[in-house]
Design a protein around this nucleic acid. Structure first.
Ligand SMILES: [Mn+2]
Ligand SMILES: [Mn+2]
Ligand SMILES: [Zn+2]
Ligand SMILES: [Zn+2]
Lengths: 144, 144
DNA sequence: AATGCACTTGCGAATTATTTGCAACAAGGT
DNA sequence: ACCTTGTTGCAAATAATTCGCAAGTGCATT
């Protein structure tokens, strides 16, 4: 546990340790990278950011750690059009994404009404939703 | 134009020819495979089905043709979780998908209400929607 | 603090899905 | 039938992610 660990990272470390996951230098670096990001970094970007704290982190370890974290529900894996997977901590309330097709910017939004309708549709079809993906791809509205 | 061409395939051939796209044996086979499919085949599956009509079709040509068709809006490319891309003709009204996570079955559905809400959300964020992806992943509802 | 073993890691090779270079081939206008 | 130019099959190239393995390291225990 590095002395530069934020309380959020320490919390994650405790949770993981409680489940028998070993806390290694590289895992702390990866957790910090995720905790300090407010965007949706790719595996490569998580690698770069992690290396600022521990230059020994490898891409394979980033992928292995991201898999563990995803399996535990600690992070979410997004597969937007085109690029590889993008990640984010799962500690905020559920939301969906609007991707600016020109800039790649990702905007988060929530719609309780859409969530309800989804559940209703699934119910009518005889299903329970396990998870869902709602992505809007758009361009800034123009009047030019 | 093979004499076993369905009217639907002939239509597609005409449209494509009108845009300067050459109608080759393999393209007819691929169009037929798509026109005769009511599911969401992968590129490999499109290859298999096309080969029943023209055994010379190669996977590279399937991918190249699918790209052309997607570019023209003739087909839609779906990227569901896990597997590679899955395709379908775009000649039916817009719909979204519910994927049975146990069987892989894909069920189509439409919700005018959700579509409206999406447009509204984008508008509030200052965007016009170019396209969107709504996928529900679910399990058959059980009471056992 | 030292020990030991199972879990982790870095590295490079393997995979999976898709794309591309290139020489041979074939639409389709003339 | 001919010619030009787009198209094809094949194999090699990419891109993103996973895996095998020998070396390294958490951390429970002494
Ligand atoms: Mn997000
Ligand atoms: Mn469909
Ligand atoms: Zn949602
Ligand atoms: Zn829709």
């Amino acid at each position: 546990m590095s002395e530069t660990d934020t309380p959020m990272v320490e919390n994650l470390e405790h949770e993981l340790r409680a489940e028998g996951v070993r806390i290694t230098r590289q895992r702390v670096a990866i957790l910090s990278a995720l905790a300090n990001s407010s965007d949706h970094p790719s595996a490569e970007e998580v690698l770069e950011r992690s290396r600022k704290q521990d230059s020994s982190v490898s891409l394979a370890t980033v992928y292995r750690t991201l898999s563990i974290l995803e399996g535990r529900g600690t992070i979410l894996r997004n597969e937007f059009d085109g690029t590889g997977a993008r990640f984010e901590l799962a500690n905020k309330p559920h939301h969906d994404h609007l991707i600016d097709v020109d800039t790649g910017d990702v905007i988060e939004f929530t719609s309780p009404r859409i969530e309800e309708l989804q559940a209703e549709i699934a119910r009518e079809l005889g299903y329970d939703i396990v998870h869902h993906r709602l992505e809007l791809y758009g361009k800034v509205r123009h009047q030019d």
